[in-house]
Amino acid sequence: MISSIDKGMGRVCDAFGVAASLVVAFLALSVGAEVAVRNLGLPAFGWTLEMCEYGLLVVTFLGAPWVLRRHEHISVDVFTRALRPRTLRVLLTISDVVAATTCVILAVYAAEAAHEAFLKGSLLFKYLVIPQWIILSVMPLGVTLLAIEFLLRIWRRFAGPQEVNPA
């Protein structure tokens, strides 16, 4: 059961990794194209700036669970490095619980903010007019996945296939 959730998470995270990579390509190409178009004397796109901003949001919060799965989030291991494996496992589990709880609470309030914007029909009036709830949904989605991944880390540490690197 949990191992199939784990597999599913792997797929979702990889898909978001691909999405984040595509956003990076979009940043370079859209801004580059905007410069080219303008210097050719053609009208500027207008939407580049805000689309890039939303793109960064996607990279940050949908990329984060993928990065977590790849063990690439920065943590300070100087104090924990010297600990015995048993103690280390306990400490890392506590830290995963703290992180998972943080993500759950953040997800709840962020989802509430998105829901409220949805009910009110709030719109973001920029060059493009976009419903605010779409933008506000990105973070709750990302941190929910982060919470699941932190819990899966605990599960993997105690029940899953043994990993070489306990972090």
Binding site: R38, P43, A44, G46, T48, L49, E50, Y127
Partner: peptide, 12 residues
């Protein structure tokens, strides 16, 4: 700005 015929560029 557009009504004045300008090409509008967004930047920070």
């Amino acid at each position: 700005m557009e009504a004045l015929g300008a090409n509008v560029i967004q930047m920070q």
